[in-house]
Computed example of a mutant assay.
Amino acid sequence: MRISDVVRRKGDKVVTVRSDETVQRLLDLLAEHRIGALVVSDDGESVDGIVSERDVVRQLQQRGADVLTAPISSIMTAEVETCTPDVPIEQLARTMTELRIRHVPVVVDGKLRAIVSIGDIVKHRIDELQSERDQLVGYIQQ
């Protein structure tokens, strides 16, 4: 199974935010879409960075409430781990675990196409195991 299988099931919608937007705007988008991270993209296609709830919390602790008016570029991770749709699910799961990251943008020819979370990968694997179980039970009961 490949990342393209996960994207096919969950969809390819990606919410992005510009690097010059404020952290307050970031929080509004996270709450509105009920997600934990946003891809930072100034043109809507490139991956310029990624920013998560954790980034905001850490900056709040360090800088206080003034961080809410700061640009997202001041708190985002600029070096982003990305993948392509053809990457095996197990490989990306291992990479995410080793790097301790929860969200990975999916890119094709340098352009943002989707985003997968560790939760998406776990859900896909659980669904896969349930399907295998159902097939085995069906085979045994025949």
Rank of each mutant, 00 (worst) to 15 (best):
Q130E: 15
G110H: 08
Q24Y: 13
K111R: 15
V104N: 03
S117M: 03
K10L: 02
E90V: 12
V14L: 02
G110A: 11
L129R: 12
T69F: 12
D43H: 10
E45R: 15
G64V: 09
D134L: 04
E53R: 02
L99D: 14
G119Q: 01
A37I: 03
R125V: 09
T69E: 13
T95Q: 12
D48K: 15
D43Q: 10
R100W: 12
H124V: 08
R8A: 11
S4A: 12
S19H: 04
R113S: 09
K10Y: 05
I140P: 04
Q141A: 15
R94H: 11
I35E: 04
D5R: 12
V108S: 14
P85N: 08
I50P: 01
V15N: 09
A37H: 07
D12K: 09
S46E: 11
S19F: 05
S4V: 13
I115M: 00
T16A: 01
S46G: 09
L92S: 05
A31H: 06
D55G: 03
V23C: 01
I89F: 08
E79S: 14
G64H: 09
V40L: 06
L92K: 04
R63C: 03
R100A: 01
E98R: 15
R18E: 07
I115Y: 00
G64Y: 12
V108R: 13
D66M: 07
V104K: 02
G11C: 03
